[in-house]
């Protein structure tokens, strides 16, 4: 008996230390990476880095066009993906019948959320760039990214709506509310925290995407800020990718600086998502 207890305790401790070691390993790798990037890039960041156009001279090159391209790309992407994604999620959860076809769709949407992004790039290339003859424009890029993040938004919306307890819907119906009144006044507002979190996480995924945009032909050198949805564009990850392929040391530093900016934007978005989630959960403790 005593032996057994000693053995269990030993296993317990061993497991604890193994788990701890694994955590620290990941943390250390992350710290080294971040330290490496920041020590290279942080000093390169100054006002003109944000306002300069790309250039053959590393010290005069900036991320103005990349940021502008990324910003416009994201805005168009959100305008397209958000209403379609949220409405699909609401439809599937609140209105659609729960039958075999519905679970077939559910499984496929979950699968779509896990498809490698480059596949979406190939789809976008054929569908938007070639067949719809949009060329390598902002619109084609935004449509491609929309396809990429829509499954994520749908899944997040469904999960958030599913988490709203039925007792709230019953209370609303019991007052004589219609389905639309219940959905619009009770269900969606109660799920909004989860929906918003999902949207922000989807957007922060879209920000980091390079592969699908490269496939549809986003340019690596764009010396102008896009002015309309039919203009060509570049984005920050593509700009970074471009700089890292240059042989000159100074461009590598530029790339590091670009990564710092991109990381900060992603951290910021994730931070906002976590903030909203916590705030909402506090308010919505049923």
């Amino acid at each position: 008996m005593k032996n057994l207890i000693r053995k269990i305790k030993f296993i317990d401790k061993t497991f604890q230390y193994l788990a701890m070691a694994a955590t620290f390993f990941v943390l250390i790798v992350l710290c080294v990476l971040i330290w490496n990037i920041f020590s290279n890039g942080l000093l390169r960041i100054n006002g003109s880095f944000f306002t300069n156009l790309p250039s053959r001279h590393a010290e005069r090159a900036g991320i103005m066009t990349a940021l502008a391209g990324m910003g416009s790309l994201l805005v168009i992407t959100i305008v397209i993906a958000l209403p379609i994604g949220v409405l699909s999620g609401v439809y599937l959860e609140e209105y659609g019948k729960k039958n075999k076809f519905a679970s077939f769709i559910e499984i496929n949407i979950a699968n779509l959320a896990g498809v490698p992004s480059v596949i979406y790039g190939i789809l976008g290339l054929q569908l938007f760039v070639r067949m719809a003859k949009m060329g390598n424009s902002l619109l084609a890029g935004a449509l491609t990214l929309s396809l990429l993040i829509m499954p994520i938004i749908i899944v997040a919306t469904r999960e958030a709506i599913k988490a709203v307890p039925d007792s709230l819907r019953e209370a609303s119906y019991g007052m004589g509310a219609t389905k639309w009144q219940t959905t619009s006044r009770i269900t969606i507002p109660s799920a909004l925290g989860g929906i918003l979190t999902g949207i922000i996480l989807a957007v922060s995924r879209a920000i980091g995407e390079t592969a699908p945009l490269l496939v549809i032909g986003a340019l690596v050198y764009v010396p102008f800020v896009p002015e309309g949805p039919n203009d060509q564009f570049t984005t920050l990850p593509i700009q970074i990718f471009n700089w890292t392929t240059r042989p000159q040391e100074a461009f590598i530093i530029n790339a590091a600086a670009g990564i710092v900016v991109l990381l900060l934007i992603t951290f910021l978005l994730n931070g906002i998502a976590i903030y909203i989630r916590n705030k909402w959960y506090k308010k919505m403790r049923y």
Partner: peptide, 11 residues
């Protein structure tokens, strides 16, 4: 009007 088993005020 109806009142349910578990209090279910809207958030």
């Amino acid at each position: 009007g109806m009142v349910f088993q578990k209090p279910n005020p809207f958030p």
